[in-house]
């Protein structure tokens, strides 16, 4: 990390609103992203994810509120600040007559990065064999990876990734997130917008949920779960035939459903989870196995989309 640009928070948004004409696309957003954090923005189409990124990239100016990125106003960012950020736009299409290596060399020159290092970056995104091929022959996934490669030029401290995994197959997605993890460990902050909820669930330090331009929630998956108050489902397995007997002894857990003759379902909340587990384990050998399934991110997301205004 550069020593000459000391930053505590990579991004600070305070009361940020953006209007296009009389349409408000981002409304009073407050958000702080710490250095090295991986924040994932989720939200419906048109929720304001891309607009927020443009504001943080300095491509457009907030109608009101304050945007600070790497300690400065992104609209008047210095060359050093701009070089410290990487961006992968949604559905980027590079000049098709250029070769992959030429595209990267062009962007390296603009960033003032040594051209020598770019073959290494191509290798990191798995494009080393395609460097001498024209971009027009690339598949969608390869173009996406070339987009990621240009964002990684010059070891950026802050990465903006607008739906970076669309068009990538499952193994490339895994590789992509491993890359982000590696960068994160070396202090790179990344802000990712995504629609693949279950994919980002395990990868994000924090999740920001946007709805119609409003930041309705932001926190860790566990934190969001607690906020939503969605029930955690617990399934208990017992010996065949005694499921009814078990159900009778679970009165402390509230509503209990008998699934078949050897398993029962019950629900608990994040706050009462440990108590239920203790009581269940007190039942001894009667319970042979236990599955705890917390709601997944898509359920949390749906809860916010449907219930929170």
């Amino acid at each position: 990390m550069d020593k000459d640009l000391p930053v505590v928070n990579a991004i600070e948004l305070a009361g940020v609103t953006k209007c296009y004409g009389d349409k408000t696309v981002v409304r009073n957003v407050n958000l702080t992203v710490h250095a090295g954090e991986r924040l994932v923005m989720i939200g419906h189409n048109g929720a304001g994810k891309t607009t927020l990124m443009k504001l943080m990239l300095g491509l457009s100016r907030a109608s009101s509120g304050r945007v600070r990125v790497l300690g400065g106003d992104p609209v008047s960012a210095t060359a050093a600040q701009r070089s410290a950020t990487g961006y992968v736009p949604e559905n980027v299409a590079f000049h098709s007559a250029m070769k992959g290596g030429e595209v990267l060399a062009f962007y390296a020159r603009l960033k003032g990065v040594s051209i020598a290092g770019y073959t290494d970056i191509l290798a990191r995104v798995g494009l080393e064999d395609a460097a001498e091929r024209r971009v027009s022959t690339y598949s969608k996934g390869m173009r996406q990876r070339l987009g990621l490669a240009q964002a990684m030029l010059g070891k950026p401290r802050l990465l903006f990734l607008d739906e970076p995994t669309s068009g990538l197959d499952p193994s490339l997605r895994r590789q992509f997130y491993e890359l982000i993890d590696t960068l994160s460990r070396s202090g790179t902050t990344s802000l990712i917008s995504s629609h693949s909820l279950n994919e980002v669930e395990a990868r994000a330090d924090r999740i920001a949920i946007l709805k119609k331009g409003v930041l309705v929630a932001c926190g860790t998956v566990a934190g969001l779960l607690q906020q939503t108050g969605l029930p955690i489902s617990v399934r208990l397995h017992t010996k065949p035939g005694i499921a009814s007997e078990l159900a009778g002894r679970l009165s402390f857990a509230g509503e209990v459903h008998k699934v078949n003759d050897h398993s029962v379902d019950l629900f608990c909340f994040e706050s009462s989870k440990m108590e239920i587990i203790h009581r269940v384990s007190a039942l001894g050998d009667m319970v042979e196995d236990m599955d705890i399934t917390p709601p997944r991110l898509d359920e949390i997301y749906n809860h916010y989309m449907e219930n929170v205004q």
Partner: peptide, 13 residues
């Protein structure tokens, strides 16, 4: 249209 202008302007340009 290609989306490269957006990208270009995030560079020191």
């Amino acid at each position: 249209e290609r989306g490269t202008m957006l990208l270009l302007l995030t560079y020191p340009v």
